[in-house]
Simulated assay, not measured.
Amino acid sequence: MSDHPAALAGSTLSLNAHVQPWVERLVADADALRVKVTQDASGARVVDAGIVAGGGIEAGLLIGEICLGGFGSVTARSGAVDGWPTWLEVRSSQPVLACLASQYAGWSLSASKEETGGKKFFSLGSGPARALAAKEPLYAELGYRDRADQGVLVMEVDRVPPAVVVQKILRDCALQPQGLTIVLTPTSSEAGTTQVVARVLEVALHKSHEIGFDLSHIVDGVATAPLPSPSPDGVEAMGRTNDAILYGGRVHLSVRGSDEAARALAVKLPSRNSKDYGRSFAEIFKAVEYDFYKIDGALFAPAEVWVSNLDTGSTFHAGGLNMDLLRGLWLKEA
């Protein structure tokens, strides 16, 4: 438990109520966004954004904003001058609520072979419905829990979740089936790659939490990262999205408090502090036999960080992009 005050204590903002217009836009524009909307046996709404459906970049941008609970924007821009043609930009004036209480993929959802009647299932749930279930210790630290009769959960999977998992989500979120929307985004799809790279600001918030910075002092955030082409190979696809943030992520946080704390945050945040820095994530992941917990936690951070102290006007900078590494991994010269 953190010694700092609960960053969201007293907040009356509802992630799930606020985000519903974004969810309904995803459903209403399904054909244009190349996603497919169905209902499972319980009556819960399921949006396929890359399993059978195409699920393009535009869908990924909207799903990225859904993951943020609608309390942030995700846009694409041209950025060839920075060494890669397409970049994502993420902004939020509610970064702790949007990134940690909503976007962070922190809800572990699994089912055994016996429960599914076939293949075991595992996924990390992200998005606003996490805050309805509040199963993670993080919510007690934040001092936040949502209440709503509708909820949306995003899952990075390449198959529809089994009925036992859907029932668990409904039960833990206290939702009726017609109130639940599940969005499925395999990382090997354009939509999946886009919505994961859109976590560049969230990665900075999570690292700030891990190193003990007072989250109640983080008041604004802007971040960018290059958008790679997805790989048909699942491990490679996941590796590319991580590399985009670890080596191409640039984050600007606006904070309150002392210059000493702001400077320390800037120094401690960048990914180059990790002993694993400098290799592709896919290579690192394979080297630890696909065990995330064997990877140095300091690696999960943006490449470059700027921290501006609104109380003093000071700005501190640390880290830097490593676009040569990314181009070496992603680019084949014509």
Score class of each variant (00 low, 15 high):
Met1Pro: 10
Ala7Ile: 03
Ala7Glu: 03
Ser14Trp: 09
His18Trp: 09
Trp22Val: 08
Trp22Arg: 14
Val23Arg: 12
Glu24Arg: 15
Arg25Phe: 04
Val27Asn: 10
Ala32Arg: 15
Leu33Ala: 03
Arg34Ser: 14
Val35Phe: 11
Lys36Glu: 15
Thr38Met: 05
Thr38Glu: 15
Gly43Phe: 04
Arg45Ile: 03
Val47Cys: 09
Asp48His: 04
Gly55Phe: 05
Ile57Tyr: 14
Ala59Arg: 06
Gly60Arg: 11
Phe71Asp: 07
Ser73Asn: 10
Val74Cys: 03
Thr75Pro: 00
Ala76Thr: 07
Arg77Trp: 13
Ser78Gly: 13
Pro85Cys: 14
Trp87Lys: 08
Trp87Ala: 05
Pro95Ala: 03
Val96Asp: 05
Leu97Gln: 07
Cys99Ile: 02
Ala101Lys: 02
Ser102Val: 01
Tyr104Asn: 07
Ala105Thr: 11
Ala105Glu: 07
Ala105Met: 08
Trp107Gly: 10
Ser108Phe: 13
Ser108Val: 12
Glu114Ser: 11
Glu114Phe: 04
Gly118Trp: 00
Gly118Gln: 03
Leu124His: 08
Ala129Lys: 01
Leu132Trp: 01
Ala134Gln: 02
Lys135Val: 10
Ala140Arg: 08
Glu141Lys: 08
Glu141Gly: 13
Tyr144Ala: 11
Asp146Lys: 01
Arg147His: 15
Ala148Lys: 01
Val154Arg: 00
Met155Ile: 10
Met155His: 09
Glu156Gln: 07
Val157Gln: 12
Val157Phe: 01
Asp158Glu: 08
Arg171Pro: 01
Ala174Ser: 13
Ala174Leu: 10
Leu175Gly: 04
Gln178Phe: 10
Leu180Gln: 11
Thr181Lys: 04
Thr181Cys: 05
Thr181Tyr: 04
Val183Ser: 08
Thr185Asn: 09
Thr185His: 10
Pro186Met: 02
Thr193Asp: 06
Thr193Val: 06
Gln195His: 05
Val200Lys: 03
Glu202Ile: 06
Val203Arg: 06
Ala204Thr: 06
Glu210Leu: 07
Glu210Tyr: 04
Leu215Tyr: 06
Val219Gly: 08
Val219Ile: 09
Val222Asp: 12
Ala223Ser: 09
Thr224Leu: 04
Pro230Val: 00
Ser231Asp: 07
Pro232Gly: 12
Thr241Ile: 02
Asp243Leu: 07
Ile245Asp: 03
Ile245Lys: 03
Tyr247Lys: 00
Tyr247Ile: 07
Ser254Cys: 05
Gly257Leu: 01
Ala264Met: 12
Leu265Gln: 13
Val267Ser: 12
Lys268Ser: 15
Lys268Trp: 09
Pro270Lys: 01
Tyr277Thr: 09
Gly278Arg: 08
Arg279Val: 06
Arg279Gln: 13
Ser280Cys: 11
Ser280Phe: 09
Phe281Glu: 03
Ala282Trp: 04
Ile284Arg: 15
Ala287Trp: 14
Val288Leu: 08
Asp291Ile: 10
Phe292Asn: 03
Phe292Met: 13
Gly297Tyr: 12
Leu299Ala: 03
Ala301Cys: 09
Glu304Asp: 11
Asp311Val: 04
Asp311Glu: 12
Asp311Met: 02
His317Pro: 05
His317Ala: 07
Gly319Glu: 05
Gly320Thr: 10
Gly320Ala: 05
Asn322Trp: 11
Met323Gly: 02
Arg327Gly: 01
Gly328Ala: 06
Leu329Ile: 14
Lys332Ile: 09
Glu333Met: 13
Glu333Ala: 14
Ala334Leu: 12
